[in-house]
Amino acid sequence: MSATEHGTMNLKLIVWRQSGPDKPGRFETYDAKNITPHHSFLEMLDVVNEDLIKAGKDPIAFDHDCREGICGACSAVVNGVPHGGQERTTLCQLHMRKFKDGDAIYLEPWRARAFPILRDLIVDRTALDRLVQAAGFVSCHTGGVADGNAILIGKPEADYAMDAAECIGCGACVAACPNGAAMLFAGAKVAQLAELPQGQVEAPQRVAAMVKAMSDNDFGNCTNHYECEGACPKGVKVKFIARLNREFTKALFQETLGTISTNRGTSKE
């Protein structure tokens, strides 16, 4: 057991407070008292919020739901790093034993033009949903599909697709990216579906639509910093961005030659 097992700590929180989408925001300082090393980060916020409520003040609003690192709801930048910077760990799974008594912690919402702030640490991430709505799917109908074993998929391919599919859609990649780009998110989806035979039929159309949707939804451009990979709580790799680039280039090349069309509703030349 660690030395701090029974010790508690007091921390200073410097938190971004903003009462609504178009309201001005500012940092405010709060004390988090009697926090044990076993508190999760969000449980520490719960403690602070209970104190605020009892003092008649507005609690800090933050997104959270499953609190076991899979739903992707929790989202705050801790001392400049989305989810706080512990490898492969969402904010809800970050524990206070990673902090010391007396630490000052800056808490900010995801910042990107694509993610407008709704309140305090809560941002609107529906732009990510819109990327999926643009083409992040296989256009199969319910029913009338082939048997699951009708098309064989090698284990390496299935594992590769699963690696990409680990994404929980939290948006930390966008928050971390100096350019507010969504390439890791889009790359993971494009790579997952392009790797599987079921998704290959629409691969060119998918990549074309998702790349366009990224611009339409105010995401920035990738400049290969790989900050996204560092911040991703699920260990999604930037090799999937390379895959996205490859799929794009391939589709562009094929379309230029007239062998495919990425415009739904038109036939190829």
């Binding site: 400049g80 033009r113 507010g180 780009a181 105010d218 451009n221 900050e227």
Partner: peptide, 19 residues
């Protein structure tokens, strides 16, 4: 475009991979 997509910087400038 990238600056427009990231209008606000974080209060703490800490980077994991950016060189």
């Amino acid at each position: 475009e990238n600056r427009a997509a990231k209008p606000t910087a974080y209060a703490v400038d800490r980077r994991l991979r950016v060189t």
